[in-house]
């Protein structure tokens, strides 16, 4: 027993032992505490295999699970002016952006893609909560407008997965103006007679809930998702009383008539296929394993084949 055994050796051991179990191979379910192997978790769409808790999923991972054969093409989003207010809190906004881009490997908090689900051509947009809380600024607004314009151009439905803490404060009033801007995007789909389906995921709050996320033709939520305008903490501070169990969770909203459905992430793809095909007056999807689509053939079919286009896709207004 000396200085070496008591101090140096444990220190060295701890240095090495850290490398033996890289933490990214296993994640702990925040709900039940089960350790989940990364591959198993990814195969289950980031849903805990033990308690069905729905964890966050990146837009890319979601699209890989959603589109036929995991094939999709990104829809280009116009770049907004960077840091429009020259905003600075404890950090400069451009620094926060860079940090978020580095941490996520993504450009911004929303990804827009087009492809087929159950051989039904759709446009999809998904918000990335890991990118600055999914917050809605000019880019997210541009993404939703681009998604709607693409959907109208291709006469396809739009499926939107929301996840956000709300508006991006660093863009001040311009983030607030995304509420009317994205509502205009929803109007474009409405005018074109195209379905707009919203899937609310955990969490969807603030100005995002109070604009495009609540204006879907069909409103679906993932189990346990927090969906609200004002967050539970703000409400507790205002009314000074404890809120009931499950308040503002997906199931609670369903009970209060604010949603059409609460659907497990694994069942979501099938449900979206069923709903979009009915809304587009298409025959039911063929169940079972389809051969993966040939991207080129699919793309031309979507534009050239009138049978694939929805009957009510002609502009409703003259």
């Amino acid at each position: 027993m000396n200085w070496i055994t008591n101090y140096v050796r444990p220190k060295i051991n701890s240095l090495f032992s850290r490398r033996e179990v890289p933490e990214n191979l296993w994640s702990k379910c925040p709900e039940c505490g089960t350790m989940l192997f990364h591959r198993e978790l990814a195969d289950n769409l980031n849903v805990c295999t033990s308690c069905d808790h729905h964890m966050a999923i990146t837009p890319r991972a979601r699209f890989e699970g959603l589109f036929d054969g995991g094939i999709f093409a990104e829809v280009k989003v116009p770049e907004p002016v960077a840091d429009p207010l020259q905003f600075r809190d404890q950090k400069r906004y451009p620094d926060r952006m860079k940090a978020a881009q580095k941490a996520t490997g993504e450009r911004e908090a929303m990804l827009v893609a087009e492809g087929e689900i159950g051989r039904t051509p759709v446009v999809a947009a998904a918000q990335d909560f890991s990118f600055m809380g999914g917050s809605m600024g000019m880019y997210v607004g541009n993404a939703i407008v681009a998604a709607a314009e693409r959907a109208v151009q291709m006469k396809r439905p739009l499926i939107l997965f929301s996840a956000a803490g709300g508006a991006r404060m660093q863009e001040g009033i311009l983030s607030l103006m995304q509420m009317p801007r994205t509502t205009v995007a929803v109007q474009m789909l409405k005018d074109a007679g195209l379905p707009y389906i919203v899937v609310l995921t955990h969490p969807t709050t603030g100005g995002v809930t109070a604009s495009y996320a609540m204006l879907g033709d069909v409103q679906i939520a993932e189990p346990g998702a927090l969906i609200c305008f004002a967050g539970p903490r703000v409400i507790e501070q205002t009314i000074r009383e404890k809120l009931p169990e499950g308040f503002q969770r997906a199931e609670y909203l369903l009970d209060h008539g604010m949603l059409d459905r609460v659907t497990h992430r694994r069942a979501l793809r099938e449900e979206l296929i069923t709903l979009t095909r009915m809304l587009l007056a298409l025959p039911p999807a063929v169940k079972g394993d389809l051969p993966p689509p040939e991207p080129e053939a699919a793309a031309t079919a979507a534009t050239a084949d009138p049978a694939e286009a929805p009957a009510e896709a002609e502009p409703a207004k003259s």
């Binding site: 509420m179 809930t209 109070a210 495009y212 409400i235 205002t238 009383e241 308040f247 209060h256 604010m258």
Partner: peptide
């Protein structure tokens, strides 16, 4: 930001 306001769909009302 109240309990009843949320239950009756504050976000939806604003969006509409």
């Amino acid at each position: 930001p109240g309990k009843g306001a949320e239950e009756r769909g504050q976000a939806e009302a604003i969006a509409r």
